[in-house]
């Protein structure tokens, strides 16, 4: 069967103005237990790539610039 793509809202939000991924920072990506964050190669900013969040918050707690905010995923908010 062919595979289709479906969209959903991102619970983890990154403030691009504060994110310093362009300087080589990958802290949020490194600490995520579910490995759902990534650096956008074009914009050089972190983003939530997969809708697989446990809302545990190491990404937010460990971000050196306070750029990450973890919201409760909509389905269980």
């Amino acid at each position: 069967m062919p595979i289709i793509t479906q969209s959903s809202s991102a619970a983890v939000v990154i403030d691009d103005a504060k994110c310093i991924a362009e300087k080589g920072c990958t802290v949020c990506v490194d600490v995520c237990p579910l490995d759902i964050l990534a650096i956008d190669e074009g914009r050089k900013k972190a983003f939530m790539k997969y809708d697989e969040c446990w809302y545990c918050m190491p990404c937010e707690a460990d971000c050196p610039t306070g750029a990450v905010k973890v919201n409760i995923p909509y389905l269980l908010r």
Partner: peptide
Amino acid sequence: LPASGYMFGTYENAA
């Protein structure tokens, strides 16, 4: 499966 239907909304760390 959590009642919310969110697959990673588990009690345990979903990993």
